[in-house]
Simulated assay, not measured.
Amino acid sequence: MNVKNTITLSDRYLRHAEKLVEDGQFPSIDKVVEAGIDELIRADELTPEQNDAVTRMGGEIRRRLDGPREDFIPWDGEALANRIKAKLDDKYQGR
């Protein structure tokens, strides 16, 4: 059941919500607000241990993204797959 309610958003939040709707990520501002509340509900449902781990992981990702680009590891899917295969081969050949 939907209940009509009125909320007030700051210009910053309203502009962002409108952009998300314009970009086609959400059908309406109502759905943007609902998605934000859904995130809060999911966060409340995490155990303290899960929440701490997620928070730490997010902090680590932000820290790394703020670092210099030259420190980034280049992505090469084929090379990565070959390294994983070599490690697995080494591990299981010694059985």
Rank of each mutant, 00 (worst) to 15 (best):
R62T: 11
R95K: 12
A86D: 12
R42I: 08
R42D: 14
A43E: 11
E22N: 06
Q93F: 04
V54H: 03
R64N: 10
D44W: 03
G94K: 06
T47G: 07
T6Q: 14
A35K: 04
R69V: 15
K19W: 12
I7V: 15
K19L: 14
F26E: 03
S10N: 12
I84E: 03
N51V: 00
P68R: 04
M1D: 06
E34M: 02
E70A: 07
K31Q: 11
L14R: 06
S28W: 08
R64V: 13
R83K: 10
L9C: 07
E34V: 10
W75G: 00
K85R: 13
G59F: 07
K31C: 01
P48D: 13
R56C: 02
E39K: 04
A86H: 07
R15M: 13
Q50K: 09
R62S: 06
S10C: 09
G24R: 05
G67M: 10
K91T: 04
N5S: 08
I7S: 02
R69Y: 14
G77M: 05
D90P: 00
L88W: 08
V21I: 09
D30Y: 00
V54N: 03
L40I: 14
V3D: 09
N51R: 14
E18F: 02
F72M: 06
A35F: 13
I37D: 01
E78M: 02
M1N: 04
A17L: 05
Q25H: 14
R12F: 14
R62M: 08
E70P: 00
I61D: 03
P74F: 07
Q93D: 11
E22T: 13
D89I: 07
D90Y: 08
G94Q: 11
E70L: 03
L65K: 05
L14Q: 05
V33M: 01
R63M: 09
G67P: 00
N51Y: 14
D76H: 11
D38T: 07
D76Y: 10
I84R: 01
D11M: 02
R83E: 15
S10K: 10
D66W: 04
F72V: 04
P48T: 06
K4H: 10
D38N: 12
G94C: 00
P74C: 01
R95W: 10
T47D: 07
M57C: 03
E60D: 14
I7G: 02
K87G: 02
I41M: 02
N5V: 15
L9F: 12
K87S: 03
A79R: 05
M57D: 06
P27T: 10
S10H: 05
P68Q: 05
G67Q: 14
N2D: 13
G36L: 07
A81N: 06
N82E: 15
L80F: 14
D52Y: 07
F26R: 02
N82S: 05
G59Q: 13
G77T: 12
E78Y: 09
S10F: 06
W75E: 08
E60Q: 14
L14S: 07
T8P: 00
